[in-house]
């Protein structure tokens, strides 16, 4: 090779090396090992619930009037007694508050409570996993009932004067007891003869409430329905459809909690896109109390209760707060009329 050839080879090599060096530096500078650019997946890979969240503002006819901390790490259930005292169960205890949210007392339990009901006479029924314990109004333990089945998991109790209804999510049944603890009959089991399709309970959420019309309302979350049973266990009617529209129940298993307003309307709470709404006794949507913008997205579900004045008391397990809602004009919580002295 001539000297000139050697030089030009070297120059060409130098140029190539230089260009490669620049490319290498740029590539290293652009490398993103820490996920700054996100997952770079297409839109079809995103789980989008944004479109499902908004609720027409004229449907929201309740406003949050107060909220207070439940003071529990894992609050699980809420109940209101005849005197409008608010009870919250969780952290192996029941705590109670005045109607304004001032702490008024607490009682420790032997186990983790799963649900709570306070009857008109002040008797508490507390579900402790598989069994029910009864406490007198002063908080002394009066009885502990034996579990109904091996898989019993109590998620709701409703106390009527002469009957105690227990929702057993594990056995997928509603159990009717007399107040003294004597088992009367199961309700809601699959029975082709009586045209009862049976309760489908995919997760430990099964709630019930005694309607003002004397029919027991039971959630059937796996079928996205609310069912009405007579005390004899006959399925009278059922309503509810699956869907993301606001008058339907969204997701795999909703509604998860029920309560009854003084005028007989039902308060139904959904998990997932946490929503609390009010339905007429026959199922038509009356209005919305609060939607996911307020209660968030969670799989926990907000337990609900109603006090004597028709206020809806919501246990927000994500915020660990009790939120109290009162009827308000649609579209907001602003009160409209006040004095007029200001210019």
């Amino acid at each position: 090779m001539t000297a000139r050839g050697a030089i030009s080879t070297r120059a060409a090599a130098g140029l190539i090396v230089f260009l490669a060096l620049v490319a290498a530096v740029v590539a290293v500078a652009l490398h993103d090992p820490i996920g700054r650019r996100g997952n770079r997946l297409g839109r079809d890979f995103a789980y989008e619930t944004k479109d499902l969240r908004p609720i027409p503002p004229d449907l929201i006819r309740y406003a949050e009037r107060a909220a207070f901390d439940a003071g529990l790490a894992v609050p699980r259930a809420i109940a209101v007694d005849a005197g409008d005292k608010i009870y919250v169960a969780g952290d192996r205890a029941v705590v109670w508050f005045t109607t304004h949210g001032a702490p008024a007392g607490a009682r420790a339990l032997d186990g983790e409570p799963t649900c709570l009901a306070v009857g008109a006479d002040g008797t508490w029924h507390v579900g402790l996993g598989g069994h029910v314990e009864v406490f007198d109004p002063a908080g002394a333990r009066a009885a502990a009932w034996t579990p109904h089945g091996a898989r019993s998991y109590i998620t709701a109790i409703a106390a009527a004067p002469d009957a105690i209804f227990v929702a057993d999510a594990g056995e997928r049944l509603v159990l009717l007891y007399r107040p003294d603890g004597a088992f009367v009959r199961p309700i809601g089991g699959r029975d082709a003869a009586r045209a009862i399709p049976g309760l489908v309970v995919p997760s430990p959420f099964l709630d019930l409430a005694m309607g003002k019309d004397g029919l027991l309302r039971v959630t059937n979350p796996g079928r996205r329905k609310v069912e009405a049973y007579s005390l004899e266990g006959d399925l009278c009617f059922a309503w509810g459809e699956a869907g993301a529209a606001i008058d339907r129940f969204c997701g795999c298993c909703n509604p998860v909690h029920l309560a009854v307003l003084p005028d007989g309307a039902l308060v139904a709470a959904e998990k997932g896109l946490a929503t609390v709404k009010v339905c007429e006794p026959d199922g038509a949507l009356r209005c919305v109390v609060a939607g996911p913008d307020l209660l968030g997205e969670n799989a926990l579900g907000c337990d609900v209760a109603v006090d004597s004045r028709g206020r809806i008391v919501v246990l927000d397990p994500a915020a660990k707060k009790v939120r109290i809602f009162e009827p308000a004009p649609p579209g907001g919580s602003r009160s409209q009329e006040t004095g007029s002295a200001h210019e």
Binding site: A13, I16, V17, A20, L21, A23, A24, V26, A27, V28, L30, H31, D32
Partner: peptide, 18 residues
């Protein structure tokens, strides 16, 4: 990924001469 491919390829190209 594209960036590290370029980085590695650039090093290999340099490596032809250096």
């Amino acid at each position: 990924g594209l960036d590290l491919t370029i980085y590695g390829a650039a090093l290999l190209i340099i490596g032809v001469f250096v």
